[in-house]
Design a protein around this nucleic acid. Sequence first.
DNA 1: CTTATTAATGTTATATTATTACACAATGTT
DNA 2: AACATTGTGTAATAATATAACATTAATAAG
Lengths: 132, 132
Amino acid sequence: MLKQETLSKNQQIVLDYIEKVNEPIKAYSILHNVQKKGIKAPLQVYRALDKLVEIGKIHKIESRNAFVACKNSSCQLSKATAFSICESCEEVSEISDNKLSKYLKSFQDKAGMKFKKYNLEFFGLCKKCSIK
Amino acid sequence: MLKQETLSKNQQIVLDYIEKVNEPIKAYSILHNVQKKGIKAPLQVYRALDKLVEIGKIHKIESRNAFVACKNSSCQLSKATAFSICESCEEVSEISDNKLSKYLKSFQDKAGMKFKKYNLEFFGLCKKCSIK
DNA sequence: CTTATTAATGTTATATTATTACACAATGTT
DNA sequence: AACATTGTGTAATAATATAACATTAATAAG
């Protein structure tokens, strides 16, 4: 039985906006853009973001302090995320590669510890930027 | 020819402290602890941190906004980092696993893009915390 | 060795990101 | 209805990080 079918008002407003922009966006930028919808304070945004991250609807790009809509239906369960980030134009894409995620999900460290979650961020130059 | 054999005064002070504590530590905590050495302002710490990250002497744990000394001599070249993070006690260890790093260094996304850098953070419970 | 260039420092102020604390309202359960 | 859980609203503040500017130290080039 999957939980949390319905989002609250603020969660839905924030998610709608993040899905609309379709690229990583920062919390205070979200705030500015949803003020017309009645959200007034940072905390209202951060609370919505926390919940949306928790249920896998969005991800946080940790190295950029930015949030992006999830493109990968399986994230809601696995919390296993991978991104490519262009260091020139800051374009970010979510990587969904079965082989990679399989490999990382089953990874054990030298003490045999397994992990229930990971976040991987790759850095380089995207196609456009590498020909400039 | 390897560059940057010698660190500047502030860089050395900050690195010494980070190596001494031997666990992830935050910028303002570093600041408090090196004030007796004459470092007075956040920017002095951040500038040293930037340089130390750049030359691979320390790494930033992005999900925690914290910095830790590098345990892995090859990082200075590769900028390829992996950590395990205990979500209970916040213990962080740098993973050095040849197979993993080889796999990730050669990883290409679906467009064939290769990456010169990555950061991977695994989350779970460490040995101590998992038996509690 | 002196001039040019680059890297580092010192300092103040400020920007950006995120949380605490508290009162209250809506929703779901028993 | 009573209770627990989750979400909201608001103000204040904490924590993290950078901009701008003046100066000094280190390096390298002539």
